[in-house]
Nucleic acid binder design. Structure first.
Ligand SMILES: [Zn+2]
Ligand SMILES: [Zn+2]
Ligand SMILES: [Zn+2]
Ligand SMILES: [Zn+2]
Lengths: 138, 138
DNA sequence: CTTGACCCTGTAGTTCCTACAGGGTGCATA
DNA sequence: TATGCACCCTGTAGGAACTACAGGGTCAAG
């Protein structure tokens, strides 16, 4: 029924240092200690850390995880805030996908255009170098 | 013909602090100084900083930018190394797109499944909470 | 001559961990 | 009992790529 920090880590896929870090920043409460000053965790902490990890896996940053945790405490409240948080995060993920997709096109166009040869002829370098105002070496 | 740091920043879309940062980490050489100890830049620095910025905009991390810069110096060399760098980076971008796309599906499925109501019924919270081993509040 | 925009240095903060260094603790084994 | 060894403790620093002060100088205009 009681875990050491290492066991809690194994159970949740979290490194020991990360758990201590979460404690330091107040995301996890300070747990009880054994006589030998080891942290001692129970089911409640396991649940809380699992929650945190799943939210992190979904890409929520820690401050949003914090918000989700405190929202989830009051089960009678309207879930609109939770949903808004998730919607915001989804929008952010979508923005990143758009950005990266544009990047991918640029990069692959660059790669397609390079035909090998010397750096002097490489289209990738050429694309990076500033527009030739007059013909001299960088 | 000579720019202040602010002018160089405006010309390249770079914050002044970022330029000083690049200098500190050796990505830009220490420029000349005016009598009043202001940094003074010329065309060459403008070109180099533009190169850096474009590479950054394409998502290359600074150490790869550094590598690209030093590769671009020797224009007679084979461009295979440049191309390999770009290919690696493209692969990385593609990995991120895959990850984010999976994330997007998960998030939007979650959002679709929530029908409003209280936090107690919210599917988003439910999906984050650990599998109910017995029915108690977190 | 004063105001304001700009510049200088140096340091600390951001995000989310991760990695030591320099110690204790707990359990098995020889 | 001594000795490993795996694990735990605290506290601090690093890493990526900036960003933001604080506490000053400099320069051009009015
Ligand atoms: Zn987000
Ligand atoms: Zn090439
Ligand atoms: Zn990359
Ligand atoms: Zn909901």
């Amino acid at each position: 029924m009681a875990f050491t920090i290492g066991e809690l880590g194994k159970a949740t896929g979290t490194k020991v240092e990360t758990i201590r870090y979460y404690e330091r920043i107040g995301l996890l409460a300070k747990p009880e200690r054994t006589s030998g000053n080891y942290r001692s965790y129970g089911k409640a902490e396991l649940g809380r850390l699992s929650f945190i990890r799943r939210a992190r896996d979904l890409g929520f940053p820690l401050d949003q995880v914090r918000a989700l945790l405190s929202l989830s405490d009051d089960r009678t409240r309207d879930c609109a805030t939770v949903d808004a948080l998730a919607r915001d995060h989804l929008a952010e993920v979508e923005r990143k996908i758009v950005d990266l997709t544009a990047l991918r096109s640029e990069l692959s166009a660059l790669l397609d255009s390079c035909e090998g040869g010397t750096v002097g002829d490489c289209r990738i370098i050429e694309a990076l170098a500033p527009p030739a105002t007059s013909g001299e070496t960088l």
